[in-house]
Nucleic acid binder design. Structure first.
Lengths: 345, 345
DNA sequence: CTTCGTGGATAAATCGGTTTATCGGTTGGT
DNA sequence: ACCAACCGATAAACCGATTTATCCACGAAG
């Protein structure tokens, strides 16, 4: 392992000063002859010079690094897309990303913020792995950007999914397909996820706008799991015919999976007998079901990009939390409603 | 934002030189009076000193950072556990991790290695998101550690899952449950995953050791998806009774999911009529199926830890690629074989 | 009385770049 | 002939820590 070639080596080989080399390689607007410029550049690549970013950073006080603090990367399948979004923008701008995982422990969080500050990161992104409201740690600089969470008691820039509009879009799809009795399968999770509430609000928005009645029997709460989704679906499908829903909108895909088992057990077919809508577009799940699950995608990649662009000041600061659109993913779990056994009118 | 407090500020406040402050805070073996030591330490915390790692790194030539190069973090649900393993060890040792995603493009890879070298990272971990054999980029230092991939043509330290032993363990479980006719559902993926071959070898190992015949009809290849797994299962279960398998071992969970749909379509029940074994222990899938899927877990977290410990020289270099054990996860998809309709003997 | 050793602390060099101020030389204007 | 402007290039300061070499004072030894 030969020692790293430095700027002094380039200077010596080119017969100029280190100053000149620095000016040339940084394209500083300075009066250096074209002849010298090309020679320095040629020699630099010839001898394989690559600058020591640590030394540069010390002087310039900018490191071209950002710190990404996340509460947990391991336990959610969405983390990757968010990281990818952040990372892609970083790479496009020749930034490097420090990744720190806190497991949600505030002591680790504080240590991480300290360590990142010590490393002189240019900015910090404070990410949550699901949409929630968080109080910023006192040590967090005000320039930090919140990703997939919104700050309580501070006005950090922030981006979260527009769950309300997403829920509305899902329900609109079902209405457009002809459904009039649409259930919402909620979660009993405690504390209640912000998203569960927003999606429910979206549901209400659309039903009201369409002039449809809100039937409390069609709002059921269950454990956040496939089994919970199955139980919810079974109870809904056992309602008397005239109150039974023809479509079910689930808090998320994980619960929606349970609908398939329930339909199977009741010898019903999706979407012929009941339409199903999920939320999250969970990879390797939603698209692999039979029939593939219609759902609303969480824009994790886009949110990651947004946060990083924000961190690099490439976006005007929003007046408040930025709501990222959740695109509807149309698959085969939605169809026209099955004719009601007792037809009214 | 007040300027970062530096070592000079501590020195001034304590009425000593910067040298003294440095010696005290680094616990250097030096003759400094206890009185001075405690005073310096007290003042340092009082005024909130935190060292500038950039400056320190420049001098010490060690940055306490490592670079983690991965081919893709977004598209696999396992990435998180691997990152978590790497990260936990990093944190325990007060290291920070640069995360770089290359999407498998060698140009990005080269740029990343250059950038990380410029940042003077102490070590590099070269990770793949699934078990494969890779040729190291020429620029990769020989001290780099391979994670979830083994090097071709170089002898970098490396860790991969012991897929062969994992496959053997799965099949052993099935044999222990009483099965004699066990199918292996392979993938047609091209290029063929290393793991598909190793798991198959594990299958053969066990059948041979148990003195059971190898029936080529029980080795089927299908597309790597739930649909592929379903087709494979259906073809297996339609074999004539005396050649039909009583248990199916799938290349991975994703394909094993198809067995549930197939069983349903054929009005068979898992595990009463057929036992099912997966591989990967894919989160939010294997455990959520009904019945929950018995499978073999990929030790991503442990491999991540191993790689980072290796990078920090906390492990003796292995003579060759380290094979990490894949633990068997017993769930409810395995039972005793259903009695063959035509009983012989 | 001089020399030596030692405890406590520090001045100065160093890491590898960037930035500022300055240099010598040539040209151009008056 | 003198000064200003400008060109091309560089010496030296600087970033904030660590590390080396050195300093002073004091007590013990010769």
């Amino acid at each position: 392992m030969t020692a790293q070639v430095g700027i002094a080596d380039v200077a010596a080989a080119a017969g100029v000063s280190r100053t000149t080399v620095s000016l040339v390689l940084n394209n500083a607007q300075s009066r250096i002859s074209d002849e010298t410029k090309t020679r320095v550049r040629r020699i630099a690549t010839e001898i394989g010079y690559s600058p020591n970013s640590v030394a540069r950073s010390l002087r310039t006080r900018r490191t071209r690094t950002i710190g990404l603090i996340s509460d947990r990367i391991a336990t959610t399948p969405f983390a990757g897309r968010m990281l990818a979004g952040v990372h892609d923008v970083a790479r496009e701008n020749e930034y490097l990303v420090f990744l720190v995982n806190t497991d949600g422990e505030s002591q680790i969080e504080r240590d991480a913020i300290r360590a990142l500050a010590g490393q002189q990161v240019d900015r910090v992104i404070y990410a949550s792995m699901w949409h929630q409201e968080l109080r910023a740690p006192a040590e967090l600089p005000s320039s930090a950007v919140f990703l997939d969470c919104r700050p309580i008691g501070s006005n950090h820039a922030a981006v979260v999914p527009d769950d309300r509009a997403g829920g509305a879009a899902a329900v609109s799809e079902l209405i457009a397909a002809g459904h009039r009795r649409i259930a919402y399968v909620d979660t009993t999770e405690n504390p209640r996820p912000v998203a569960a509430d927003l999606r429910w609000r979206g549901y209400l928005d659309v039903l009201k706008a369409a002039g449809l009645p809100i039937d409390p029997r069609l709002h059921v709460r269950e454990e956040l799991s496939a089994a919970g989704g199955r139980r919810a679906t079974e109870s809904l499908l056992r309602l008397p015919p005239h109150s039974r829903p023809t479509a079910v909108f689930f808090f998320n895909d994980r619960m929606a999976v349970g609908a398939y088992a329930a339909a199977n057990a009741l010898r019903l077919e999706i979407p012929r007998d009941v339409s199903v809508f999920g939320f999250d577009d969970q990879q390797l799940v939603a698209s692999e079901l039979d029939p593939p699950l219609s759902t609303v995608a969480l824009p994790h990649y886009e949110m990651g990009r947004w946060a990083m662009e924000m961190a690099l000041d490439q976006r005007p600061p929003p007046e408040s939390t930025y709501l990222m659109t959740c695109p509807v993913i149309r698959r085969a779990s939605v169809g026209p409603p099955s004719p009601s056994p007792t037809k009214t009118g």
